[in-house]
Design a binder for these strands. Structure first.
Lengths: 111, 111
DNA sequence: CTGAATCCGATTAGATACTG
DNA sequence: CAGTATCTAATCGGATTCAG
């Protein structure tokens, strides 16, 4: 969690401090449906590198927005899932999805 | 507007292509309330530079999310406002504001 | 007041190789 | 499979100067 001193006055800025880049939002978009494994996530986000995915997953985990569960199996399995805090962000992602869907329609209907 | 070839399959990615950085979302947050002038905007967003603000305003204008109106006065006055397209993004910013407000409460109540 | 243009340093991302 | 470590390339941001 952010400390009080890291907390911006503006609520929107507060939210952006935690998920204010496109990779994080795309990760959350995936996790809104179900838990995901690392390589599965890597393949599903076009253009992201292993390193950048790792960095962003770590950051989201530190901020307690997602959870990371290691299953002691061979081969190893790691699952990422939304925490309760992450779950509470669903309306944000949903709003972006709704808007994006409408915009896609606009573009596709234009000549 | 984006061209069909620039349009991601995912609606969330589509939205992020247009406003997927924190400055743009903070600019929109301001414009949700009323039109703003350039220097006024500059002062209201802590940490942003003149160049970065200019770049982001131009990009939003190109994507037809905001409008730029020059009033031929002395001294010159320029007003930025939401277009209809930008206006339709209100639910996205609102969702982030609602979430951020709840999160601020969480942090402030924690010891 | 509202920018444009330039320069330069900082930050971030990508590629590659390696590991438990 | 799920990373880490390292290096480099590219992007972005900040400061400054100038202009209509």
């Amino acid at each position: 969690m952010l400390t009080k001193s890291e907390l911006p006055d503006c609520p929107v800025a507060t939210t952006l401090q935690l998920i204010g880049n496109k990779w994080k939002m795309l990760i959350l978009r995936n996790l809104m449906t179900r838990p995901w494994r690392f390589n599965e996530m890597l393949r599903s986000i076009p253009g992201i590198s292993q390193k950048v995915l790792t960095d962003n997953l770590r950051a989201l985990e530190n901020d307690e927005i997602i959870t990371r569960t290691v299953f002691p199996e061979v081969p190893p399995r790691v699952e990422y899932a939304l925490s309760d805090l992450g779950e509470s962000m669903r309306p944000i992602i949903k709003a972006m999805e709704v808007w994006g869907t409408g915009y896609q329609r606009l573009v596709r209907e234009s000549k």
